[in-house]
Design a binder for these strands. Structure first.
Length: 287
DNA sequence: TTTCGCTAGTGGATTACATCA
DNA sequence: GTTGATGTAATCCACTAGCGA
């Protein structure tokens, strides 16, 4: 949004007949010239006490401030689609606004109490089921789909849009929980592996410090890995024994003599595995 | 009374398009 | 005609309040 709050305030104070939150084009506004300029963001919708919001709209009167403008209350309102579909959106915008107005719950300001409080009523099971089905097919809606769904369910397009937004949020939350659990297990495994390797390192160092170690030390060992089975084997001038990685299965070179493409592995200096994966400390960058 | 899930409002960020110099 | 700056509308997400079960 390129309009700052100051600009909004200025607009409100200077042009009381123009809504600052309009989503309509000028020609659409011309169709609805009599709506007031209440700031819908600061004026909560009227409540809906005792009324089943899920009932088929009866009158054109909208309970919320949307009717005051003839358009939705939030800049987010009305259209839900992936970006870059302006033409498609434009075609549906007016229809949606009319639908939203028609899709009211048949309440007047008197009926909803007019105390500024809002009522959030549940969608029926049938409505939720249909929305769920639709969400399974596509988790975002283009304006036409939204309008059709709203009409089918006797809801306002805004309600359908909000439902999809919240549904996406729930999906993301659950996925985040799953990811978190997975990473937690990874972290635990790596911690355990690190602990085990540290212990092994200590043992090797202790062994290295003992005089006997030098007595029995063989010439430098070269590790070879079979690219096919990725097994590591060790070889040295005087020993073809088991100096391979503790994590890899050590296989005598003889078992892999048929492979002509064995490559040598130079043992790298010891690097402890961090107890906590680095990516956990690196927040994902927003593209 | 408290808790939890759901619905909806709000603000910021982003994108596409229109207009103008 | 092209290009960059600017404005506007639409959409998304994150956060949150409020309602109902």
């Amino acid at each position: 949004m390129m309009i700052g709050k100051e600009d909004l305030a200025l607009s409100l104070s200077l042009s009381p007949t123009i809504s600052t939150t309009t989503n309509c084009r000028s020609h659409q506004l011309n169709l609805l010239p009599s709506f007031s300029s209440l700031d819908t963001r600061t004026t909560p919708p009227a409540s809906l006490r005792g009324i089943d919001m899920n009932q088929t709209p009866v009158t054109e009167r909208e309970d919320s401030e949307e009717d005051m403008h003839g358009m939705p209350s939030s800049p987010n309102s009305t259209n839900s689609s992936s970006s870059g579909k302006r033409n498609e959106r434009d075609q549906v915008t007016c229809e949606e606004h009319m639908l939203e107005r028609a899709g009211s719950r048949g309440l007047s300001d008197e009926e909803d109490g007019g105390d500024g409080s809002r009522k959030k009523l549940r969608l029926s099971k049938d409505q939720s089921a249909v929305l769920e089905e639709s969400f399974k097919e596509h988790n975002t809606l283009n304006p036409k789909q939204k309008a059709a769904l709203a009409q089918r369910l006797n809801l306002r397009p805004r309600q359908v849009e909000v439902w999809f937004q919240n549904r996406r949020a729930r999906t993301k939350l659950k996925q985040t929980e799953v990811d978190c659990e997975f990473l937690k297990r990874c972290c635990e495994n790596l911690t355990e592996e690190n602990r085990r390797l540290q212990k092994e390192l200590q043992e090797l160092r202790a062994l290295k410090l003992s005089p006997q170690f030098y007595m029995q030390m063989n010439p430098p060992t070269t590790l070879t890995m079979c690219p096919s089975c990725e097994r590591v084997s060790s070889s040295s001038a005087g020993n073809s024994g088991s100096a391979g990685s503790s994590a890899a299965t050590v296989v005598p070179p003889s078992m892999h003599q048929t492979y002509q493409h064995h490559r040598s592995i130079v043992p790298a200096p010891w690097t402890p595995i961090p107890l906590r994966p680095a990516f956990l400390d690196t927040p994902p960058q927003r593209s």
